[in-house]
Every structure is written in structure tokens, then in C-alpha cells.
Design a protein around this nucleic acid. Structure first.
Length: 1117
RNA sequence: GCCGAAGUGGCGGAACUGGUAGACGCGCACGACUCAAAAUCGUGUAUCGAAAGGUGUGUGGGUUCGAUUCCCACCUUCGGUACCA
């Protein structure tokens, strides 16, 4: 009987589904094992042969574990929210749910054909309200939690509020002055609801903040940095601009250390861990204060000035960078902060903005409606009365009224000040807007140092630098700050102004790519000097683009003797270099290596670098000029998307004043987010009149009037929301009460083996770890890491095929062997209707669909039918009369016409063959091109296996005879090798061993049940269909997949002799069999007596005789 | 640049802990069966050489009785990351 895979596979596929044999429950005494594949996004294009590679591997593993007596959870589902369906909706009007449903159906059909053992009853879909109800629920938990750094875990906000109520935030190490001013418990109790909410927002793990983002108007969305290529959107190539927006964020930075430490315990590849480590980018160092000498004439004397508007249109500074840069700015004065808390959010019944640009001045606070400017004056203003007068007169001219208060007034009699402001507001009519000059909202270009709170005090400035090498401070001969640094204007002296302006113009003109590729360092001198706190020397302050505004403090101390870039910069700019480390004891050490002895460094002299770092850090802290500081590259994760097809936020706003524009400036939107009641979840994604964004920055949800009326958040959650916790839902997928019941979570715990592509290294895998750790902190899960073992399968690449088309004669295609145009006969030329080969001009490579090509030869007829413009194509063939194609290994993609659909392969060879061939292709983790040349080998194997059971005539050949020792040996050798290979996921060699086994049994003409039946079980994980058929034919009534893996009986594997290779000086010269229990002396004598060995030793005693039992004999002469 | 992975026949790859390099499969060649073809089965297949023997795992060194495996330097390819102080 022939092996008819299509009948067999159809039959058992139905059987498995009907009997639900892959359904798994928690009521089991067996040990659990959780095998998971990364969540697929069901794209409309369906699966290609690359996609199932990991699924096949995990399926084999899951099936094997089941046979080995584990209760295996092996689920599958769909990450169903996403941009492609939404993009399609925008183009065609089809609801994304419809598109997604269709794609899922197609995926499911394709997956079913391959014979996976998924428990489909547990399938989840992120776009299902019963699923995203819990995504929203977790979000609310994040929103309602803060990170307690003392206990190093997240806690519900209640504990924080209690803390504030009992002791305020005085002397609290977790309090950051940049966020909000210090307050006592009494003050906290007196704060308004809005004030309290404002402060709590600095602690919530899901929080609102203002950030500049990469706004792509055409796509109507904010893009991640990696979605931007050359300043344009990756998808579509639309322009990208920078906009400030109110966004949700997850405070992942609180978890940086734990995410880093957690890696140590995980069974992940080093490269994967490294990617996460690099992403988090922890570096230990110090913040050091450098006092800056006030330039002469001082900025106060110079008044205001304009710097180029370099912050616009720059795509490289991410939203997070900006937040960070902001925190690097000098603090607002306490008085300003206090007053702002009272003015913001329409508290006085009028809307105030702060740090607002009017004409060329930035005012502290302004109510535009009434035209009232409120200025908070530091002591500095006492000295600059005249200038303030000019400033006031300009403002009055523009239709503004100005009232001023001193810091003392504001702090000591806040109520009185507010009364005055209120009275003033009420006395004023609406402002005469005709007086206002154009773009008053553009605050980007002009900075008035008067308006910067940093100018408070007596005009002394400090530059904070971050360094990982504080030991080198005696070699710090200049400072470099980012061109975007706030103090650039303040520091620039009139003499240097032109140079600085020119440099900033230059920086602004450079694209990201140019800036990245540039190895040359460039910069400009500000004209100002700072004081090295240790050497006491005056050192110049430069700006240079190699210092980034978004990292550290945006300022560095340059140590040209010990830093490659600083050195280049110093050499180029003629700055002094002071050697501070003697590396003569470390030949070969590079300039950056942390080794050597300190020199020219005062009290550090003679110390090793490591010790010097410790000593200087102690000193810095003792002198109060800086502190130890750990810096991270990682930023808080942006969590808002201005799109439609995603999870709505379970948030509505208590609208304070008018509805805000999307591109709100800091402090403009005072709406207070209110979490929805858990009982009202899910907040279902509404229908909208258009899937397009509104154009003014509002997400498509703003197209639904009811939604707006209810004050719901119009942004949606990002793609990673649903996939950050789906592995938990599989444990209890239909529970309407909780995201997963505690007893089920306790049973399944976490994922034992996780398979997926390495492209998720820092996205999904980091966020999922964050969520899991958060849920762990709150006690919802019992493990603090979600994925114990992670394996990345390699990609299957496509093999593209090319035809070569003439530029001058687009109907003519030249075979790959004849591109040179040599030996082309006149007949051939005539057939093409040309005189000479050169008339064809350039020959361009064009992708031909791989389905038309077999063994490199093009099926010309199929190719002609492919496209209408090819119907009349003419071909210049090779000498063998065939058209040969060129080929190249590329990414498998539709656009390259190199996609191979698994359905086609299965139709031709069957699913078992497809599965085994995918595995046979090579190591799982390695990328490899798809080439079905070898598939016949696997197909032959399956048929050979089949023929052990059935003759060609269809007779059953299996006998009940007792196998011989040799036959048992083949069986148990194979069982051993196969289980070892599956355990270490070496499926390619596993397939090989089955082939060897079948070849050996074939040559022994073995058809014995006692050998074949165990083999059927062992092969079942790899080839589930054929084994099920044969298992039934062997007389079993239950499924082979519910059987037990056969016991390996070592007794058949015991060897009593070994065929030793005997080498002379490492070269094999003879093969001799010896009993394994023979003594070395005995063997030595026999070996030396051998004729082949005598030939080399000439009878002399060898220099050395090496004997490794069961391995090798080596004679050294 | 930095971090990581990898370089082995005509091709995919094997050799897991330093112990017979090239398992297994493809392809190719020859043979058997057949009127013939397909299918199947068998034999051979790193390379130079008639043979003896020599040479061979990206290149050059080293350690070792013995190295694809360990060490040093370099080259190439792929992936990640990018002026991170």
C-alpha cells in the first residue's frame, strides 16, 4: 500500500479535533510544562514557510514532553490589534475587525494543516473585549500604583498618600526637586484635589506627561525612532515633524535595575541578554558641579538675544530625551512652582500659561484671555530695574498688563498674592487681540535668560556633568556641552556669538544620518570658562554635536588624555592635554581601558584606576560638589498611540475649562484623568465615522461625538499592551472574574520554553518582563520572571530568482549565462529583431516569481502568462536551450516574489514531510535560505518508514517475532539519540538519526512489532500524522500522542569491544578492535606488535603511548 | 566603532565534554530491475596522486601525544547598536 499522506492527514486532523486530544486542564498529578510561541500578528498575506519554523520546533518539544509524562500547556492565539488592518481600513473603509477576523481564519486553516497540538480552546485574541478588559484592568493597576524605592517594589498608591498625609515629602530620598517642591504633611492636607493629583502624577507607574514626539501628519500618528528612516516615516516615507503632546507613559525606569539583574537567572542566549543590557544601558559614575565664571559682559548686561530655532524638525531626540533634557534644566524657583500650582487648571476661573513667549520675552505666567502677565521676581530684579521697565513697556504696548511679586511675597502670603491677581483679572476687560503679533505660541526660538528660573540668584552658574570616570578629573582640561543645552546662550560671549551661531546653524543643517556617520569631531567655543573644582584651573566651555542633549546632563568634562573623542577634539581645537594615567604597565591597553596608575593628579597619584575612582567619589561627596550617580540609557516607555485599532484607555477626564488641543504645551491641559470603575470594564472600542486621525493631532476616536462627550481618552494603547501579559491569560482564558485565577497561575507559574524571533529582544520581551514584575509586586503572580528559557529561531530567508531585461527592448530577456553577450549568433539576433547585442543596452535584474523556476530554469510559458506585458516576451536562451535565472538570498517577502506558501509544500509532500524538512534544514537558531531541493530526502525517509509496515502491494508486514540483539540495539540507540537531541532542540540531527535507524532496519529486513511500535511513538512528535495512522494499524485504539515515550534500555547499548583507531603521531594508521575491559598494558603490546604499526616504529619502543578507553590509541614515535 | 553569532565537500549541514573531520540528506556518476521511463535498490563521491603517501574545517601563529573544538592576531559574512561621556 502506498503512503497516501493527504488521506491520512485529513483523517487524523478531524479525529484530533473531534476528540479534543490536545485539550489540557490543571487537574493533573503530572508535572506542568509550559511551551509557548511568540504571539503572531495575523497579516493578510497568510503564512509563508518561514513562519511555522518556530511553531514546528515548539510543537515537537511540546509533544515530546507530553509523551514524557508532563502536563503540557501549549496554546496559540493572536495579537490582533495593529497598524496593517487599520491602514487597510483607512484605504478601503473595511472595519479592521473584519480584516483581522479574515486573516485569523486563514492563519488558523494554515496552522491546522501543519498538525500542531495547540489547545485551541484556550486561544485568545487581543482585540476581543473580554481579553482587553484585563489589559485595561492591568493598566488601571499601573495607574494606581507607585514604585517604593525603599522596598524596591511597586505598591498601590494608598501607601504613598498615607506617607504624604503623615510626613509630607520632607527629607524623603525619593523626592526629586525637579518634579515638585517639598511639602509638609500639613501642606499636603491643605492642597486642593487638583494639586494632589498633579503631585501624584509624578509617582504613578502609568502617568501623563508632556513630550515632544515624532509626529507624522500623513499617518496621523506618533512614530518610534526606529519607525523613521532618513527623517521620513518608514512606512510611506511621509515627512515627520516634532510636536509636543500630552502622552501616557509607563515608568519602566523604576524597574531598570531589576530588569537588569533578573537576566542573570534566565536561560536565554547571551546575545539576547546583551541586547537588553545594552538597551537599559546602566552606567555608574558621578555628577560633578563645575562653577562657571560669569561671562563679561554678563548676560544680564546683554539683555535678550535670539538663537536659531534648532529644536524643530529634529527626529533624533526622542520624546523621552526631551523629558530628560527638561529635568536637566535648572529648577523653577520654589516661588514660581508654588504660584503655578495655584494658577494652573483654571483655579482662579481663568486659564493661565507659564513660561510663555510674548514678543521677544518669556513671561512667567500669562492669562491670554485677559492679557494679564504675572511675574515672579527673584532678588536679581532689584539690580535690573531699568531693564524690567523696558520689558514692561513692551508688554504694555502689546496689550498686556503686568503685575510683579517678589519670591518672598509669593511664598509667605500666597493667598494675598492670589487675591491681588484675581482682583486684577476681574477688573480687566478682554484683551485687545488686535495688538498681538502673529505666532505667539511659538516659544521655540527665543530665550530670554531673565525668564529662565536659572537666572535667579546672583548670576552665578553651575554646569553639572555626568562622568563614569571621575578619577580623570585632573585631566579635564575643558568642558563640552550639547549645542541644545540651555546655558549655551548664557555662556556665549559677544565675541564668540557669531561663531556659536554659525555652529548651531551648521548642526541644525545636518541630517541624522550625517551626524551619525561623522567620525570627525566639530565644535565651537562659547567664550566662557568654568573652574575645575580639583585643579582649580579655568577651563574653556565648548559646544559640540558629539555631546547629546538627551543623555546624562548634556554636558561632559572632557579628558583628552583618556577619551578617544575628547582627544580628537582637543587635537583639532588646540586644547591642552594633561596625561593623568600611566599605562606603561599595561602594554596593549587602549585609551579607554580602566587600568593604570594615576599621575599628575594630586592626592590620587600612584593609585590604581579602580581605587582612584572610589577615592575621588568619596572626596566629591565630602566636598559637596557632586554625587555618585547611576545613569541609564533607557527612558520611560511611551504608551499612547494616536490610532484607532487598539485598546481604549479606561480613563475619562474631568475637564477643566475648555477642551484642549492635542498639541498642548506643558501646563496647558489641566484635565484630570479619572480611572473608570473596574466594574464598568471593558470600555469597548467604539465605532467611528472615519479611521483617519482628525488632522489636528487627535486620534480617530475623536471622530465619535459620544466618546468625546463622555470625556474619554481618545488615544489608544500601543501594540505591546496586549502582548505584555497574554501568556498569563492562556492559563485561564475564559475567566470573567479575574485576568486568571490564582490557583491556575500557581499551577502553571510561568513559561518554561519560549520560542520566537530575536527581533523582539528589546520590545516585547522587555515590556512583558516589566508587566510580570509589576504583577509580581502586587502579588498577582508568584514568579518574577515570565520566560525561563528563551530560544530564538533563525529566519528562513527567501531565494529570489532574477530574469535580465533589456533596457532598450523591454520585451527581451537574456539568460543568466549570456549576459556578457558573447558568441551570440546572427540567427539569434535576427530572432530578436536586432543587429548587434549591444543594441539591448543595459540588462536589469528583475524578480521573477520563484514558482516559475525549477533548478534555476525558468518556465517560460508560466512567466509569459504572469503579466500582460510579458505575453510577447522574447528570450535569449543559454546553450542548453533553457532560460537560466540568477538568484540571491533575501528576506522572504511578497515584493521579492520569493515567498513559498506552506500549503503548496504540504499539498506536494504532506505535513509530516514539511515539518521534518523544516527541522532537517539546519540548526533551529540559525538563519537559512529556503531551498526545497533536499525535501525529497525527507519524503523518501517517510516512505521507507512506511514500507517497514506495508509492502508495495499493501500487505501488512509487521510480525510479532522477538527481535535480535542487533535490532534492539538499533532501536534503543535511536531512542537515546532522539531524546537527547529533542531535549537540546537539535532537531536536524534528530531527523538524521531516524533516517539512519530506518536505513539500518531496512537492511536487516526487520519488520518486528517490538521494534517498530516504540519507534512510532518516538517519531510521533515530529511526524504526528503518519505515526497516528501506523499506531492505529498496529492495533491501538487510543491516540499515539497520548502514549508514553518508550523506556531506553541501556542493556542493549552496552558494548564490550571497541574498534580503536590507532594513530601514529596523531595520524590514523590502523583500526583494531579490543575488548573494553582489556588492560592498557595488554593493548599496548598487541598494538605494537601490529604489522601496520611496526612499519612506523621499526620495532623501537615508542616515546609515548596514549590510550583513551573507548576513544583512541595514539603512538608517539 | 562597539556587542553578539558564524565561516567545514558542488550544496544544506554533522562532529554535544580536546580524541577516527565530512554523519544524514541533496546533487552527481556508475550499476541492478524494466521494452523503456518513473519509482525502487546497490556502489562510489573532500582533494592531489597510478600507488605508497601527502594536503585539508576563513588566514597566520601558539598550546597539546592529539585542535573544527582552547589561546593570540587578522580577514569575511550576518544580526544588534550607535557620538551613551
Amino acid at each position: 500500500m502506498e503512503y497516501k499522506f493527504s488521506e491520512i492527514e485529513e483523517k487524523w486532523k478531524r479525529f484530533w479535533a473531534e476528540k479534543e486530544i490536545y485539550k489540557v486542564t490543571e487537574n493533573s498529578s503530572k508535572p506542568k510544562y509550559y511551551v509557548l510561541d511568540m504571539f503572531p500578528y495575523p497579516s493578510g498575506a497568510g503564512l509563508h514557510v518561514g513562519h511555522p519554523l518556530g511553531y514546528v520546533a515548539s510543537d515537537i518539544y511540546a509533544r515530546y514532553k507530553r509523551l514524557k509524562g508532563f502536563n503540557v500547556l501549549h496554546p496559540m492565539g493572536f495579537d490582533a490589534f495593529g497598524l496593517p488592518a487599520e491602514q487597510y481600513a483607512i484605504e478601503t473603509g473595511t472595519h479592521p475587525a473584519v480584516t483581522t477576523e479574515k486573516a485569523i481564519k486563514r492563519y488558523r486553516e494554515q496552522l491546522d494543516k501543519i498538525g500542531f497540538s495547540f489547545d485551541w480552546s484556550r486561544a485568545v485574541k487581543t482585540s476581543d473585549p473580554s481579553y482587553y478588559k484585563w489589559t485595561q484592568w492591568i493598566f488601571l493597576k499601573l495607574f494606581g500604583s507607585w514604585y517604593n524605592r525603599e522596598l524596591n517594589k511597586a505598591e498601590p498608591l494608598a501607601s504613598l498618600i498615607q506617607k504624604f498625609e503623615t510626613s509630607g515629602c520632607m527629607e524623603w530620598s525619593q523626592h526629586d526637586k525637579n518634579d515638585h517642591p517639598e511639602f509638609t504633611a500639613q501642606e499636603w492636607m491643605s492642597f486642593s484635589h487638583e494639586q494632589k493629583e498633579g503631585i501624584l502624577m509624578y509617582y504613578r507607574l502609568a502617568f501623563l506627561s508632556y513630550a515632544e514626539v515624532n509626529w507624522c501628519a500623513a499617518l496621523g500618528t506618533v512614530l518610534a525612532n526606529d519607525e523613521i528612516k532618513d527623517g521620513k516615516s518608514e512606512r510611506g516615507g511621509y515627512p515627520v515633524e516634532r510636536k509636543r503632546m500630552r502622552q501616557w507613559f509607563l515608568r519602566i525606569t523604576e524597574y531598570s535595575d531589576r530588569l537588569l539583574e533578573g537576566l542573570e537567572k534566565l536561560d536565554w542566549s547571551e546575545s539576547m541578554k546583551d541586547m537588553q543590557r545594552n538597551w537599559i544601558g546602566r552606567s555608574e559614575g558621578a555628577l560633578i558641579d563645575f562653577r562657571v565664571l560669569t561671562p563679561s559682559p554678563s548676560p544680564k548686561e546683554r539683555g535678550t538675544y535670539v538663537v536659531p530655532n534648532f529644536m524643530n524638525g529634529r527626529a533624533d531626540v526622542s520624546a523621552q530625551n526631551i523629558i530628560h533634557a527638561k529635568s536637566n534644566r535648572q529648577n523653577p524657583t520654589k516661588a514660581e512652582a508654588v504660584l503655578w500650582e495655584e494658577l494652573r487648571g483654571n483655579k482662579l476661573g481663568f486659564k493661565f500659561r507659564r513660561q510663555h513667549l510674548i514678543d521677544k520675552y518669556i513671561v512667567d505666567f500669562v492669562c491670554l484671555e485677559k492679557g494679564l502677565v504675572v511675574e515672579a521676581d527673584g532678588s536679581i530684579h532689584a539690580l535690573t530695574k531699568e531693564e524690567d521697565a523696558i520689558r514692561t513697556s513692551v508688554l504694555v504696548e502689546k496689550g498686556f498688563h503686568v503685575i510683579r511679586f517678589t519670591n518672598d511675597e509669593i511664598l509667605n502670603s500666597t493667598k494675598g498674592v492670589l487675591e491681588q491677581i484675581k482682583t486684577k483679572l476681574e477688573s480687566l476687560g478682554d484683551r485687545n487681540t488686535a495688538l498681538i503679533s502673529g505666532d505667539e505660541d511659538d516659544t521655540s526660538g527665543i530665550i530670554n535668560p531673565e525668564a529662565l528660573s536659572s537666572a535667579e540668584g546672583l548670576g552665578e552658574e553651575h554646569l553639572k556633568v555626568f562622568t563614569t570616570r571621575p578619577d580623570t578629573i585632573f585631566g579635564a582640561t575643558f568642558l563640552v556641552i550639547a549645542p541644545e543645552h540651555d546655558l549655551v546662550t548664557w555662556l556665549t560671549t559677544p565675541e564668540q556669538k557669531t561663531e556659536i551661531d554659525n555652529y548651531i546653524t551648521y548642526v541644525k543643517s545636518r541630517t541624522d544620518v550625517e551626524r551619525q556617520q561623522e567620525k570627525r569631531v566639530t565644535g565651537a567655543f562659547t567664550g566662557s570658562y568654568a573652574i575645575n573644582p580639583f585643579s582649580g584651573e579655568q577651563i574653556p566651555v565648548w559646544i559640540a554635536e558629539y555631546v547629546l542633549a538627551g543623555y546624562g546632563t548634556g554636558a561632559i568634562m572632557a579628558v583628552p588624555a583618556d577619551d578617544e573623542r575628547d582627544k580628537k577634539f582637543a587635537e583639532k581645537s588646540g586644547l591642552p592635554i594633561v596625561e593623568i594615567i600611566d599605562k606603561s604597565m599595561h602594554p596593549g591597553a587602549t585609551i579607554e581601558d580602566k587600568v593604570g596608575k594615576m599621575i599628575n593628579s594630586d592626592f590620587l597619584n600612584g593609585l590604581e584606576v579602580k581605587d582612584a575612582i572610589k577615592k575621588i567619589l568619596d572626596k566629591i561627596e565630602e566636598l559637596g560638589i557632586g554625587e555618585r550617580k547611576v545613569n541609564y540609557r533607557q527612558r520611560d516607555a511611551s504608551y499612547s498611540r494616536q490610532r484607532y485599532w487598539g485598546e481604549p484607555f479606561p480613563i475619562r477626564y474631568e475637564i477643566v475649562g475648555k477642551a484642549d488641543a492635542a498639541f498642548a504645551d506643558e501646563g496647558e491641559s489641566n484635565d484630570i484623568p479619572i480611572p473608570l470603575d473596574v466594574a464598568s470594564l471593558p470600555l469597548v472600542l467604539p465605532e467611528v465615522s472615519s479611521y483617519k486621525p482628525t488632522g489636528d493631532g487627535k486620534a480617530p476616536l475623536a471622530n465619535n461625538a459620544d466618546w468625546l462627550k463622555n470625556g474619554y481618552e481618545t488615544d489608544i494603547m500601543p501594540g505591546y499592551a496586549g502582548s505584555s501579559w497574554y501568556f498569563l491569560r492562556y492559563m485561564d482564558p475564559h475567566n470573567p472574574e479575574v485576568f486568571a485565577a490564582k490557583d491556575k497561575i500557581d499551577y502553571w507559574q510561568n513559561v518554561d520554553l519560549y520560542l520566537g524571533g530575536s527581533e523582539h529582544a528589546v520590545g516585547h520581551l522587555l515590556y512583558a518582563r516589566l508587566w510580570h514584575k509589576f504583577l509580581f509586586d502586587l502579588g498577582y503572580v508568584g514568579t518574577d520572571e515570565p520566560f525561563k528559557k528563551l530560544v530564538n529561531q533563525g529566519m528562513i530567508q527567501g531565494v529570489s530568482k532574477f530574469v535580465y531585461r533589456s533596457a532598450n527592448r523591454p520585451d527581451v530577456f537574456v539568460s543568466q549565462t549570456r549576459l556578457e553577450g558573447k558568441d551570440v549568433t546572427t540567427d539569434e539576433l535576427a530572432a530578436l529583431g536586432i543587429q548587434s547585442f549591444d543594441e539591448l543596452g543595459a540588462l536589469s535584474e528583475i524578480h521573477a516569481d520563484v514558482s516559475f523556476v525549477e533548478d534555476g530554469v525558468l518556465d517560460i510559458e508560466a512567466f509569459k502568462k504572469w503579466r500582460t506585458d510579458y505575453t510577447k516576451a522574447k528570450f535569449l536562451l543559454s546553450a542548453d536551450g533553457k532560460y537560466h535565472c540568477g538568484s540571491a538570498v533575501e528576506k522572504m517577502s511578497k515584493s521579492k516574489y520569493n515567498v513559498v506558501n506552506p500549503d503548496d509544500v504540504i499539498g506536494k509532500y504532506g505535513a509530516d514531510c514539511f515539518r521534518m524538512f523544516e527541522m532537517f534544514l539546519g540548526p533551529l537558531e540559525q538563519s537559512k535560505p529556503w531551498d526545497d531541493k533536499g525535501i525529497s530526502g525527507v519524503y523518501n525517509f517517510l516512505r521507507k518508514f512506511w514500507r517497514l509496515f506495508y509492502s508495495d502491494g499493501g500487505e501488512w508486514k509487521v510480525t510479532n517475532d522477538e527481535p535480535t540483539a542487533a535490532e534492539y540495539k538499533i532501536l534503543h540507540k535511536t531512542l537515546k539519540k532522539v531524546s537527547e537531541d529533542i531535549e537540546r532542540l537539535a532537531f536536524n540531527t534528530c531527523v538524521s538519526s531516524f533516517m539512519i535507524c530506518v536505513n539500518e532496519l531496512g537492511s536487516l529486513n526487520c519488520h518486528k512489532k517490538k521494534v517498530l511500535e516504540p519507534l512510532v511513538i518516538a517519531l510521533a512528535p515530529l511526524a504526528p500524522f503518519i505515526t497516528e495512522e501506523l499506531w492505529a494499524a498496529l492495533g491501538n485504539s487510543s491516540s499515539v500522542h497520548l502514549a508514553s515515550f518508550p523506556t531506553i534500555e541501556e542493556q542493549y547499548l552496552v558494548e564490550n569491544s571497541f574498534d580503536y583507531p590507532v594513530s601514529i603521531n596523531g595520524k590514523v594508521r590502523a583500526q583494531v578492535a579490543f575488548a573494553l575491559d582489556l588492560a592498557q598494558e595488554e593493548i599496548k603490546q598487541q598494538v605494537l606488535a601490529l604489522e601496520q604499526i611496526q612499519k612506523w616504529t621499526n620495532g623501537a619502543e615508542p616515546k609515548k603511548f596514549i590510550f583513551v578507553k573507548g576513544k583512541i590509541i595514539n603512538v608517539v614515535v
